[in-house]
Simulated assay, not measured.
Amino acid sequence: MDKVPMTTAGYAALEQELKTRQQEERPRIIQAIAEARSHGDLSENAEYHAAKESQSLNEGRIAEIEDKLSRAEVIDVSKLSGTTIKFGATVNLIDEDTEEEKTFQLVGETEADVKLGKVSITSPTARALIGKKVGDTVEVNTPGGGKSYEVVKVAFR
């Protein structure tokens, strides 16, 4: 059984989603099924079928979250230190073509969200950054072509 690396915040977010799905979504869906069932003939009851589908999706997501939590290897990033980029690091980069600064945190796959600057440890960008230090140049192959970055800061927070 593979461990899933996860930050403390990522683990807490999954726990919160699980709690919401079990304590709020599940009873709401059960109520919707009961209400739709009271409308009679189930064979042509769209509300009933929609509620059953919602129940299936919710229960599937609950099982998925429980699996991830059971395999989680929680890493407290605030206890990490050093100057070398590794899991949990928040990295500031300068795009050598545009001079634009970007900030990424390397996280587990389950908490990756590019819009929030959280990059999966398995992504091409993260793999290129692992082991680098401030001052290093990093070549990253992206879908839009090669990018060249200079590492300007490495922090663990």
Rank of each mutant, 00 (worst) to 15 (best):
D113H: 09
R61I: 06
I29G: 00
S78V: 08
S78I: 03
D113Q: 09
I33H: 03
V114A: 10
F156M: 03
K153Q: 12
R28M: 10
G88M: 00
V91S: 00
D41K: 10
K68I: 13
G131T: 06
E100P: 05
E99W: 12
T84K: 09
T7N: 02
E109Q: 12
E24L: 15
S43R: 15
A36W: 06
V4H: 03
D41G: 08
G117A: 04
D95E: 06
N45L: 03
T7K: 01
I94W: 01
M6P: 06
T7M: 01
T20L: 13
A51T: 08
F104Q: 08
K79H: 11
E66Y: 07
E47L: 09
S54T: 10
D67P: 01
A72Y: 02
E17W: 00
A51M: 03
E96D: 12
R127I: 05
G60Q: 13
I29F: 00
I75V: 15
A34V: 07
L42P: 06
D67E: 11
T125I: 11
G82C: 00
G117M: 04
I121V: 13
G60F: 04
V119S: 12
V134G: 03
I29S: 00
A112D: 08
Y48P: 08
L14G: 09
T83M: 05
V107W: 07
T122C: 01
S38M: 11
H49T: 10
Q31Y: 07
K133H: 10
S81P: 02
S70G: 14
K3F: 05
T8A: 11
K133E: 09
I75G: 01
G82D: 05
E150P: 05
H39V: 09
K19S: 15
L18T: 15
E47D: 15
T122R: 00
G131V: 11
E44N: 15
E15M: 11
M1F: 05
G144R: 08
E109A: 15
D41V: 07
T8P: 01
R26K: 14
Q105Y: 03
L106M: 09
R127W: 01
K147R: 13
R21W: 02
A128D: 05
M1N: 11
R37Q: 07
D97H: 04
Q16N: 14
F104N: 06
A50P: 01
E64K: 14
K79E: 14
E150S: 11
Q55I: 04
K79G: 09
E139M: 12
